[in-house]
Amino acid sequence: MGRYVVRRLLQMIPVFIGATLLVFLMMYALPGDPVRALWGERSVDEAQIAAMKADLGLDLPLWQQYLNYLLGLFRGDFGTQIASGRPVIDVITSALPATLRLTALAFLITVVLGVGLGVIAGLRRGGKTDRAILFVTLLFISVPVFVIGYLYQVFFAHNLGWARPTVQDPTAWSQLLLPALVLASLSLAYVARLTRTSVAENKRADYMRTARAKGLTGRRAVSVHLMRNSLIPVVTFLGVDIGNLMAGAIVTEGIFNVNGIGSAVYRALSYREGATVVGIVTFMILVYLVVTLLVDLLYAVLDPRIRYA
C-alpha cells in the first residue's frame, strides 16, 4: 500500500508539470502587455515599465518564468496579481470557503439523490418508476446548467418566493441550497444513471442468488451485498466529479452572484489577469490529482480483491 501510494505520487509529478505548463503557455500567449495596461491612456514611462517587469520577473525568458513559478509553488506561492500586487494565494483563500461550501452541498445532493434514484431505478429496471427516472435524468443532462439556473431562479425565487434569487451571505447554508441544486443537477443525473446500470447488472449476479438462497432478507442482500459491489464505478465517477463541480461553479456562481473561486477566475479572465488565472487553474489541477489518488485508494476498501502491493 505504501509503495503504491509513493508510485502514484511519482506518476502525478509529470502530469502536474505538464498540465500547469500547458495552462501557463496558453495564458502567456495572450496578446497584450498587462504591465503596460496599468498606465491606460496616460503617457508611458519606459524605464518604469522595465523596472516593474524586472521586479515581477516578467523580463525573463518564458521557460525561466515557468521554472520560477514552479519553484514558488513549493513554497505555497501561487504568483502575484499584476494590477493589485496581491498574492494569488490570498485571492484563492478568500474565495475558497464559499466555493467549498457550495461544492460540498452540491456533492451531498448528488450522492444522496443520485445514488438513491439510481438504486430505485436499477431494482425496478423496465418498470414505470425506472422509465420516469431515466426520462427526468435525461432532461437534466440535456438542459444546460445555465438554463436550469435561470429557470430555478425565476420559479423558486421570483414566482414561489421560497428562496432568495441571489446569495447575499455565502456562509448561510439555506441561501446556498438553490445554487447547489443547480450545480448538482448534471452530476446527479449522471450518478443516477450510472448507479442504475450498475445495480441492474449486479442484481442478476450469482452472489445475489447465493445471498437470497442462504436466507437473507431482500433488504439485507441489497444494502450489504448489492450496494458494495455496485458502488465501485459510481465512486470513480464521484471522485472525478468533485473537480467538475468546482469548475462548473463558474456558471452557477455567476448566476447566483456567489463570490467564490468561479467568479474570481471569471473576473480574472475578463481582465486578462494571467497570473490569477494560472494560479487558480493550478489549484484546481491539484485538487483533481489528489482526489483521483484518494479514489484509487478507496477502491481497495470497497473491493478487497484489489490489493496494492
Binding site: 500547458l22 469548475a247 462548473g248 486578462r272 488565472v277
Partner: peptide, 20 residues
C-alpha cells in the same frame, strides 16, 4: 499525456485558450 490533458478542467481550459 492523456492524464495531463485530463487534469485541465474542460470548460475552464477552453476559456483560457479562447480569451487569447
Amino acid at each position: 499525456v492523456v492524464d495531463t490533458f485530463m487534469g485541465i478542467p474542460f470548460l475552464l481550459g477552453a476559456m483560457v485558450i479562447l480569451v487569447s
